[in-house]
């Protein structure tokens, strides 16, 4: 199975995706449910609509800022980062992803 996986990093932490899997799906499968905070109240955001309509899941991928994680397929070597360009900079104590710390919280079924 392992050679089927695509390696990428999320905030410099090595992660793996299935070929063709979107960034959002790979993060959820890796137990990460949030990768941006809102600009006013610093509320965490991740996948909501899952089909590109809601823009909650904005994430930075390589040089592209604020792309929709639910639509962008992971490509080998992608550097995925918490989306700071959606206006969340400067909210103290709120930056950074929410990690569950519990592997079973999200999972890959395939």
């Amino acid at each position: 199975m392992s050679k089927e996986r695509v390696a990428f990093t999320f905030d410099d932490v090595p992660m793996q995706a299935l070929p063709g899997q979107t960034v959002g799906a790979a993060l959820v499968a890796g137990g990460i449910v949030s990768w941006r905070v809102t600009r006013s109240d610093g509320r965490p955001r991740g996948i909501f609509c899952g089909i590109g309509a809601c823009f909650d899941c904005l994430v930075d991928v390589n040089e592209d800022r604020c792309v929709r994680a639910c639509l962008v397929p992971v490509r080998p070597g992608d550097r995925v980062r918490t989306c700071t360009s959606a206006g969340s900079v400067g909210v103290p104590g709120t930056a950074g992803p929410v990690q569950t710390g519990e592997p079973a919280q999200g999972s890959q079924t395939a």
Binding site: L18, Q21, A25, A26, V28, Q105, G106, S107, T109, A110
Partner: peptide, 10 residues
């Protein structure tokens, strides 16, 4: 997430 990517919350 499940159909296309085999990923689930839970």
């Amino acid at each position: 997430l499940l159909k296309a990517h085999g990923a689930v919350f839970g």
